[in-house]
Nucleic acid binder design. Structure first.
Lengths: 134, 134
DNA sequence: CCTATTTCGGTATTTTAGTACCAGAATTAT
DNA sequence: ATAATTCTGGTACTAAAATACCGAAATAGG
C-alpha cells in the first residue's frame, strides 16, 4: 500500500474547520458549530479536531464555553501541517515494488515520483490558514 | 473517496511488466515469465495484463507459445496510459467536500489541486516504455 | 483428436482506509 | 452539589481498494 498522496474528506474538513477557527480568533469554536457551518457530521469533526488537538496545532477546552482555538498564528499553519497530521503520512514516496527482487538496475520511475512529491510539498506548504482571514 | 493520486503495486507491476515486453519485442512474453522475472504473483500479473489487453494497449495470444506483445510502438506508450487503465481513474481532482454546503465562496484550495494534477499529468506522460529499450 | 499450455472472466478473500458511535472525564454555571 | 455542556479515547462499523483464486475457453503440437 503506497499512496503517493490523497486528500480525504477528513483532511479537507480539517482545513475548512481550522480556517473558521482562525476567522473567529481569539474566540473559541466548538465542534457543534463547525458541524453546522460545514454541513458535516459532528462526530466526524470531533474526531478530526481531537487529532489536531493532540498534535498541538490547536488547544481544546471542555465543558460549557469550551471549544477549540489555534495554538499559533494562522500565518504559521499550512495545509501541509494539517495534511500530515490527518493522513498521518509523509508525501515523499517512490516505487511500491520491492527493490530486492526488481530486475531493473535503475528505477524505471527515475526521479518522477520524487519530483511530484516535491511539487506537492511546496504547494501544500503555501496554503496557509491566514489565506482567508484577511 | 477522492484520491488525488496513488501508485498501486498493480500500476507499478504493469509498467515494469510492459517494459520487459517492450524489451523482448517482437517476441511474445507470458505471465509466468513475467512473474518470475519480477518476483511477483503470477495470478496478480495475469489479472493486470488481462486489463491491459482489454484496453487495447497490448495483444494477447492463448495456448502454448501464447503470451503478450505490444500493440503499438514503445515510444507511444506512456505511464500515464498505463496508470489510467490500471487505476481506472483520472488524475484531475478538486476539493472532496460538497460545494453546495460549503460556506466558503472561493474554494480554499484555490488552484492548488489542479496545479498538482497538471504536474503529475505531465510527469507521467513523459515516462515512456521506450525509456529502457535503448 | 488428445493433451499440455496459456489467457479469460467472474468471483472470493483480504486488507486498509474512512467514518460513525458511545460511555466517560472535565469544566462551567447555577 | 447538581446539571448541562463539551472534549476524549477507544472501538465498532462500513465501504472500497487491492490482491488472490479457479473453472472455462482457446490454441498449438504431437
Amino acid at each position: 500500500m503506497s499512496h503517493l498522496i490523497n486528500v480525504s474528506e477528513a483532511a479537507s474538513l480539517a482545513l475548512h474547520g481550522l480556517t473558521i477557527v482562525a476567522q473567529q480568533s481569539p474566540n473559541k469554536v466548538n465542534s457543534k458549530y463547525l458541524a453546522e457551518k460545514l454541513d458535516a457530521s459532528e462526530a466526524h469533526l470531533a474526531k478530526i479536531f481531537q487529532r489536531l488537538s493532540k498534535s498541538g496545532l490547536i488547544r481544546s477546552f471542555r465543558g460549557p464555553t469550551g471549544g477549540f482555538m489555534l495554538n499559533k498564528p494562522a500565518e504559521e499553519i499550512s495545509f501541509l501541517d494539517i495534511y500530515e497530521i490527518i493522513e498521518s503520512k509523509i508525501i515523499l514516496n517512490d516505487c511500491p515494488l520491492d527493490k530486492a527482487g526488481c530486475p531493473f538496475e535503475n528505477c524505471i520511475f527515475g526521479d518522477a515520483l520524487k519530483n511530484i512529491s516535491y511539487n506537492i510539498y511546496q504547494t501544500f506548504e503555501n496554503i496557509k490558514l491566514s489565506d482567508f482571514t484577511k
